[in-house]
Amino acid sequence: MAHIQIDDLRRILVACAGEDDGIDLSGDILDTSFGDLGYDSLALMETAARIERDYGVALADDVIADARTPRDLLDLVNRAVPADAR
């Protein structure tokens, strides 16, 4: 099972899509919406692609679109079965 934590997600988000100058990502962002964090649907797709490469977990685009907050996305990844374990 993959296990990704909020700090991993922070790092991946910044690497994939930069960070909004007016937003402090280091705070408690688990339940802040991606929209409020400055990340749009493309940023999330890019992030999901990176997660797939790093953690072996593939998430369909429509599944990613349902993740509204970092907690949602972490749950999706951590519950998913890695592709190589199927």
């Binding site: 910044v14 690497a15 994939c16 899509a17 930069g18 960070e19 909004d20 100058d21 400055g38 493309l42 890019e46």
Partner: peptide, 8 residues
């Protein structure tokens, strides 16, 4: 440029 715009 803001870092948001660099990867894209």
């Amino acid at each position: 440029l803001p870092s948001r715009l660099l990867p894209q």
